[in-house]
Design a protein around this nucleic acid. Sequence first.
DNA 1: CTGAAAGCGCTTACAG
DNA 2: CTGAAAGCGCTTACAG
Lengths: 341, 341
Amino acid sequence: MKRVTTEDVAKIAGVSQSTVSRVLNDYPYIKKNTRDKVLAVINELGFTRDEIARSLVEKRTKSIGLILGSISNPFFAETAEVIIERAQELKYDVIVYNTGHKDENLEQAINLLIGKRVEGIILTSVSKNYTEKIKKLHDNGFPVLLYNSFLDIKDVNFIVMDNNKGARLAVQHLIKLGHKKIAKISGPSKYLATYERTVGYKEEMMENGYEIDEGLIFNSEFSYDKIYSFTKKLLKKKDRPTAIIAASDQMALAVLDAASSLNLKIPADLSVVGFDNIRLSANEFIGLTTISQQMDQMSLTALEKLIYLIENKETSSSSIQIFLKPELMVRKTTGPAPVQD
Amino acid sequence: MKRVTTEDVAKIAGVSQSTVSRVLNDYPYIKKNTRDKVLAVINELGFTRDEIARSLVEKRTKSIGLILGSISNPFFAETAEVIIERAQELKYDVIVYNTGHKDENLEQAINLLIGKRVEGIILTSVSKNYTEKIKKLHDNGFPVLLYNSFLDIKDVNFIVMDNNKGARLAVQHLIKLGHKKIAKISGPSKYLATYERTVGYKEEMMENGYEIDEGLIFNSEFSYDKIYSFTKKLLKKKDRPTAIIAASDQMALAVLDAASSLNLKIPADLSVVGFDNIRLSANEFIGLTTISQQMDQMSLTALEKLIYLIENKETSSSSIQIFLKPELMVRKTTGPAPVQD
DNA sequence: CTGAAAGCGCTTACAG
DNA sequence: CTGAAAGCGCTTACAG
């Protein structure tokens, strides 16, 4: 399939290549007659402008990068949908990278995206190992924005929930229900958002007079299988916890999976709280109690702030650091602590 | 942030721009000395090759398009993850478009992607209204491949499950459990894959001596809310069905949602079968009986066949049309038909 | 209103 | 081994 160029169109329409380009760009002063002629030829030949060539001269690609941990996790799928759809409306396309939560992949994704000359990047699941890398991009004036992820420096844009507060809400809810042995399942603490949830959990537990049992805390990989087997082992113990707070709804689902495989009844035998408020958690068949991250707002804001940064490079000065308020959504997976026997 | 070019590197390294390009492309015959010098400058300046400019001359973008109905549907999220990850391994990046199951968006997405000079497109959720459009691309030698979607012509590449057979498996399973009133929830029949499921359902019902009750068949939009309210209305009737076959696991989840809101017990009061076998359906807390589409194989094959088409444009002659075998996964949402009262 | 020409940042024959 | 030059397909001052 030989590509049709503006040159080809020009020749057939009997005008210059620049004229073809002008009608493509809706220049004013073009005689209606020649415009019509050119348009006709464009149509006839099935010409499609080469945006690659255009990007080269315009120094704009109208595309952005979206780097996320794992799009099969509904939190990422649902937020990605909001981002992609809104980007489309604004005429940007989005190149998606899936890191599988691997640091090397994150670094590689950023480099490839920069090579492809995306105009900005939205990132999630950024570990603090990448603080320097992100800071450098930011300092160079390259639009980057994290969501559900943050770094402990001034020179970075992010939008996150108040994670500490969110964890406290979960703990308070469970304590009110009479739970004393509450486990916490989190990802690796190099992810600060996850780390904050663990901190909030510990602080709230201690402030309520409970001791921290490190055996009840899982702080390892973002892996369904790992979480599933940790939970199973935990729940097989004689003195098992009566409640578990997971650091995401996806993790909560793994916990429910493990608990159900042990024939534990939810919430009679075990209460479970998630984080995120993915759509599924509101499903009446499931009814997952969770901490809402206001996912739609988070992702929509992420996209719009990034586009703002792209289109106002000069004026933007200070960093964008937004904290969303967490909200406890009580549903069916939490209930009164079982009477100890 | 002024971009660094090969010209800049050349000047500082004291060589010509072509030499810089050569070290970038790992040309053999370059004196180790000059290569090292260039590499040092590249490093020092933080140079990243402009892939846009490169694409223009190479006439290759190393990127593909992925157009899907709705990435928040786990079927698409999980298959997209396989496709994106495998594409990354093969050094292709993927631009994702979300059509929201709107025909206009599909058309627009294809045009934009072609403008961006992607080398091939993977499509899902293609309605038969787009038969001509897809055929034209195919005939022009442009690599396109559909998955979980097909068109009734020779000149199109696709990979789908045997949908008629899949629906029959679901019906057989329910009939064996004693169900007589079985409802079917599908998407619009302009999507042939969905249509085939309805056909298989009808055929199997009739072959088993049951009459088709059109009131038990939903053939409208792919909308969670629509399906939810249709189901709710259906289940409120005195002579409600004892089983429902949904055309996807996502739809089955909507059915379960509606049934639970009516306090129906699953499967005691209602059996539910889905299609897809998303990961969640195997979760013991949910245990959705479903027809497996072999999602991983389907999506991996889709990506690899597309890349094959891209990299062997000349040799490829006949169309790729692959049918995967459906498999019934019996879990917890189906059980014996309740005794009628 | 419209054409000829330069230039975006690369790759790659063509010479030497 | 390496440089000068053409060219990929566009956009846009510069003239007229």
